[in-house]
Amino acid sequence: MTSKIVISHATVDKPLVEAFIDFLRLGLSLDRKDIYCTSISGTIPTGVKFVDHIKEHIEGAQLVPLLLTENYFKSKFCLAEMGAVWMINKNIYPIIIPPLNHTAIEDTPLKGMQIRYIKSFEDLLGIGDEFHALGVLDDVPISTLVSKESKKFFKNYEEILDEIKIVEKATVSQEDYNTIVSDNERLLNLIDVKIEEIDSLKEFVEKIKQAKDKQEIAEIEMADAPIWEQFEEHVENVKFSIRGLDKIIQSALFYDVRGEEFWPPYGVYTEEIKNLASREKIFEDYGGNGITVNERFPDIRAAIEKINILERFIANNNDLLEETFESNYSVPLIFKSADFWEELLRANIVISER
C-alpha cells in the first residue's frame, strides 16, 4: 500500500525533513502512514531493494514534495530521483529552501514550473491551503493548528539551515548506483519525447479554447484522456460533490441508484432526519417511499448529475475498466454496491431497514 505523499530529499537534510514532517503531522493532521520518507527509520522493510521500493511509492503517491536544497542538487541520487518523479508522477510539488532561489531549477526538468519557497510563516500557511486544494488533505486545515506548528517550525529554522550546511557525502552501493544511472539515462532520453507530446497537447487545447465554451473544452479534454484517467476524474467529481452532504442524503442517493426505497432506522437518526426535513432537504414518507431528497437544492442536483455521469461511464466502459480496477481496488466494479460507494466515493452509507 502506497502513501499519500512521498518526500524527495537529500539524506543529509534529515533535520529539515523531520521538522517538515512534524508540521505535516501536527499542523495539517496528516497520518504518519500517509507520509513516505526514506530518512525515517522503518520506512523501507528489511530485505527490500530500496530503489524498487521508492519507485513503487512515487508511482502511487498523490503528491511528491521535493525539498530542494544545496545538498539535494549535489546528490546524484537526488537528481536521478527528480528525473524519475518528473516522468512517472505528474503531481510534483517543488519547494526551494534558502539560500537557493528559482535559478536552481533552470537546468532541470522543473524549469518553468511554479515553485513554493519556505521563507516565512505565510509560506507554510500556503502549503496547507494548497495541500487541501490538491486533495492530499480530506478536510480544510485547522487554522489554529497550522499557525501553532508554523511558528514552532520557524523557531528553529535558522539553526536547521545552519546544521544542514555541513554536508557529508552520501554513498550507495555500486550496484544501486549503476541502476540509478541507467534509469536516469533512460528517463532523460524520454524527456524530449514527453516535451513534444506536452507541446502538442497544449496547442490542441488552445485551438479548442478559441472555438468552444468552457464546458465543451472540459468535456473534450477529458474525452481525449485514457479511459482509466477519465474514470478517476469522474470518481473525483462525484466524491467532491457528495462530501458536503449529510450521510442521510448520501444514503438516499445511493438507494435511488439501486432503485430501492430508503428506510433509515428512525430511532437512531430521528433528530438528524427531523433537521433535514425541517430544512426541506429531504422528504419523509414512511407510509410509502421512505426518505427521498429534494432536487431543488443546487448541491443535491449537482451530485445527482455527477452520479448519473459516472454510472453511464462505467456501464459503457465496464470491460475496458475491469482489469485495471481489480488491480487497484479490493472491491468489485459494481456501481450499485455499498462497498464501491464507501471505498471509492468515501460515502457514509446508512443501511436501510427494509
Rank of each mutant, 00 (worst) to 15 (best):
D224R: 03
F77G: 07
Y286R: 11
L134V: 03
I7C: 10
L321R: 14
L145A: 13
K194M: 09
E122Q: 11
Y117W: 07
S41D: 09
E18Q: 04
K55P: 00
K165N: 14
L100R: 01
R296V: 06
L333S: 03
E233S: 12
N237W: 04
C78S: 11
E56P: 13
I217A: 06
E233L: 07
L26Q: 15
P141E: 04
P99M: 13
L344R: 10
V193C: 08
V257S: 10
L310S: 03
N317D: 11
V181F: 15
K76F: 15
A347T: 15
V350D: 15
F73I: 05
R25E: 12
K209T: 02
A61N: 15
E149P: 00
L320F: 06
K202N: 14
D123Y: 03
D107S: 13
I334T: 12
V64W: 00
N275L: 07
H9G: 02
L145Y: 14
L137Y: 07
R346N: 12
T2M: 02
S8D: 13
R312T: 08
T270Q: 08
I249C: 12
E196D: 12
E163W: 01
R32E: 13
R279C: 12
S241W: 02
H57F: 11
G288R: 01
T270G: 03
S278Q: 05
P265A: 11
V17I: 09
S39M: 10
D299K: 09
K119T: 15
A302R: 08
K111P: 02
M82V: 01
S8M: 03
F240M: 01
S75I: 06
T144D: 04
A211N: 13
K274F: 05
E272M: 05
F313T: 10
G244Q: 03
Q174L: 12
E59W: 10
V235T: 07
D192H: 11
L110C: 07
E229W: 14
S278C: 02
V12M: 05
G259L: 07
P65F: 05
E196V: 08
G287N: 13
I300D: 01
P98S: 11
K33H: 14
A10M: 05
D123M: 03
E18N: 05
E206V: 10
S143R: 08
E216L: 03
Y266A: 06
T108S: 09
N317I: 09
D199L: 14
F153R: 00
F254K: 02
I44W: 02
L68A: 01
D192R: 05
L320G: 01
D31C: 11
V331R: 00
V12D: 13
P65G: 14
G288M: 01
G83M: 02
I334Y: 14
I115T: 14
D192A: 11
V181M: 08
I105R: 00
T38Q: 04
F313A: 09
G27Y: 01
S29I: 01
S241C: 09
L125W: 04
K4L: 11
V51C: 05
K247I: 13
D319G: 04
Y329G: 06
E343V: 12
C37M: 10
T2W: 02
R243D: 07
N289I: 15
D319Y: 02
K55L: 02
